[in-house]
């Protein structure tokens, strides 16, 4: 174990990616703190306790701890500070609710780590979810720099893993997803390097591909603001611009927001939000 005496904080939703991130980090670190974040607009936060309990039962309560933190104030500030000026400069990018939400979680995680002298943070960010700002490589790099400014190493142990196949809206696979556990081609799923497959091999999931199923949804909180974000990103932005342009504008937007994040973490006024 490389960091036997160290603690790692995990940004933990309870979904397959963050659960695997925790299962991988427990092999490197003496202790894990699973940080789940709650705010207005996130429902069923208690769902995150299911996989947290599974990890605690498997690895021991002395090694895994689960904490839920409210971040209403930070999220509201990050989303709406200098709003008119930001709308003039970045337009509909201000609807990157998922990225702003994740940035707010990072801010809260840095504050927690600073208070508890934790030097390592990980999460389940995955390259397959590259529509979401917080899982785009350039934005992930911006987050790493933010953490580094506070002496914390932020890593993404499942970033390179494959995403499971997403059935189209009208495919059989999606029809299967209505059932608690979806039917799947085991041989095909076991050939992939997905978070689900590794969790299954570790005895932490009943099947290699549970992503999007009722089983998966019951293990993480629910938030509908991603619909607003996807409407803007898919129907408005990507309807007449390329993905590279989308990444470029996202990086510019989050460069400004990261400066706000630093101000929150270093100023007396900002710390009142934490």
């Amino acid at each position: 174990m490389k960091h036997q005496d160290d603690t790692c904080a995990i940004l933990f939703s309870g979904g397959t990616d963050s659960t695997l991130a925790a299962a991988l980090q427990i092999e490197e670190f003496g202790k894990l703190i699973l940080l789940t974040f709650d705010r207005a607009g996130i429902a069923k936060i208690e769902n995150s306790k299911t996989n947290a309990k599974m990890l605690i039962d498997k690895y021991g309560a002395d090694r895994v701890e689960h904490i839920i933190i409210n971040f209403d104030k930070v999220f509201k500030h990050i989303s709406y500070e200098n709003y008119f000026k930001n709308v003039m400069k970045h337009g509909f990018m201000n609807l990157s609710t998922c990225g702003l939400c994740k940035l707010s979680m990072h801010i809260q995680a840095i504050d927690y780590c600073n208070t508890h002298e934790i030097k390592y943070v990980a999460d389940g960010a995955n390259q397959g979810m590259n529509m979401f700002p917080a899982q785009m490589k350039p934005v992930v790099d911006q987050m790493k720099d933010l953490y580094q400014n506070f002496g914390i190493i932020y890593s993404n142990p499942v970033f390179e893993y494959e995403s499971p196949d997403e059935g189209s809206f009208i495919s059989m696979e999606n029809a299967n997803m209505l059932k608690s556990l979806p039917k799947q081609d085991m041989e095909k799923e076991m050939q992939k390097k997905t978070a689900g497959k590794i969790l299954y091999e570790k005895g932490l999931a009943p099947l290699p591909n549970v992503k999007g199923s009722v089983y998966d949804r019951k293990r993480q909180p629910r938030c509908f603001q991603f619909i607003l974000f996807k409407m803007f990103a898919n129907k408005y932005f990507l309807a007449n611009k390329t993905y590279d342009e989308y990444v470029g504008e996202t990086v510019d937007f989050f460069a400004d927001k990261v400066k706000v994040a630093e101000a929150i973490l270093t100023s007396e006024k900002g710390k009142k939000l934490l």
Partner: peptide
């Protein structure tokens, strides 16, 4: 998509939620 995005953009925090 544009109409929904416009509505979302002008709404304050709780109403957007």
């Amino acid at each position: 998509g544009i109409v929904i995005s416009l509505i979302g953009l002008i709404l304050p925090w709780r109403l957007r939620i």
